[in-house]
């Protein structure tokens, strides 16, 4: 199993395609950082428009923590596309290349193959997120400095103290990892059904795009189905950036406003992963390799 995983990772990281995602993340994060560094004040004025009418907001508002939040907000919606690039190709790519039949005539069980490939995709996803964290958080810390973070929600504003943020990002990246692994497992499942990688990649992307649009559209008739779309739960990481308040409306450091809901969202995603993975195993074990 370990050997198979090594082999799968070897295959993933020997392919140029793998690095497209890392390059894309680097470029996107860089562009956002560059833009915010250059013209962040205007962006903040726009975001704080309503608040500025009643309040004077002073300090290093556009610091690394807010920049990282903005980056995650913008990018995490699109990272699934990069992940489907690899995940949608895991089985279908080998079927297309003709290596699947060779691989499956080896003394390894198909379940092992599924697990090894899934784990490899998971590791790839985690590395991608780690890379993103390094760029979005740590590079931003160098460029923008640290400080308190203002989380501008649609109904209210949360001010987080700078020493109460890092653990939230660790939790948020952990949540994002679960969300992205959900995407990976969906792409992986779809890759079982095709003999070219374009189909599953595009199918995964389409599912994500359509679901995300439905999840974010604030239209009443779609609200009923939102809880059943896993993409709705994928932005649950934002939950870590809201705090509880005491009777005096004073934010309590180290708390999460709706931890239960965030955990529930994470649980739903984990269930999706288990579901997609189980389906993958069942499909793959029964699959006749005709490619």
């Amino acid at each position: 199993m370990w050997k198979l995983l090594q082999i799968e990772l070897f295959k993933i990281f020997k392919r140029p395609r793998t690095y497209i995602s890392f390059a894309a993340i680097t470029a996107l994060v860089g562009i956002i950082q560059f833009g915010l560094k250059l013209d962040g004040t205007a962006y903040m004025e726009f975001m704080l428009r309503d608040l500025s009418m009643s309040f004077d907001i002073e300090g290093n508002i556009l610091n690394a923590y807010l920049v990282c939040f903005i980056i995650l907000q913008l990018l995490l919606v699109h990272v699934p596309l990069l992940i489907s690039l690899i995940a949608g190709d895991l089985i279908s790519g080998e079927a297309n290349m003709g290596t699947l039949r060779l691989l499956l005539t080896k003394p390894i069980s198909r379940t092992e193959v599924v697990f090894a490939k899934f784990l490899a995709a998971t590791i790839y996803t985690l590395l991608l997120l780690l890379w993103m964290a390094i760029l979005a958080l740590f590079v931003s810390l160098l460029v923008f400095g640290s400080g308190d973070m203002l989380n501008l929600k649609s109904d209210y504003i949360v001010q987080l103290k700078s020493n109460d943020i890092m653990w939230r990002y660790i939790a948020a990246f952990g949540f994002a990892a679960i969300a992205m692994i959900t995407v990976a497992s969906l792409g992986f499942l779809l890759s079982m059904f095709a003999e070219n990688s374009i189909g599953p990649i595009v199918a995964t992307m389409s599912v994500i795009v359509v679901f995300t649009i439905l999840s974010t559209l604030d239209i009443p008739i779609f609200n009923a189905i939102k809880p059943y779309l896993f993409t709705t739960h994928m932005i649950g990481w934002k939950g870590f950036f809201d705090v509880k308040v005491n009777a005096d409306n004073e934010a309590i450091a180290g708390t999460v406003q709706n931890l239960g809901k965030v955990m529930q969202a994470a649980g739903i995603l984990v269930l999706h992963i288990i579901g997609f993975l189980t389906a993958s195993i069942l499909v793959f074990r029964k699959k006749d390799v005709l490619s």
């Binding site: 309040f55 004077d56 610091n63 400080g147 308190d148 203002l150 700078s162 020493n163």
Partner: peptide, 12 residues
């Protein structure tokens, strides 16, 4: 008025 951590929100 300076707040530790940097950001202060004060009435206009």
């Amino acid at each position: 008025l300076k707040r530790d951590g940097g950001i202060s929100i004060l009435p206009r």
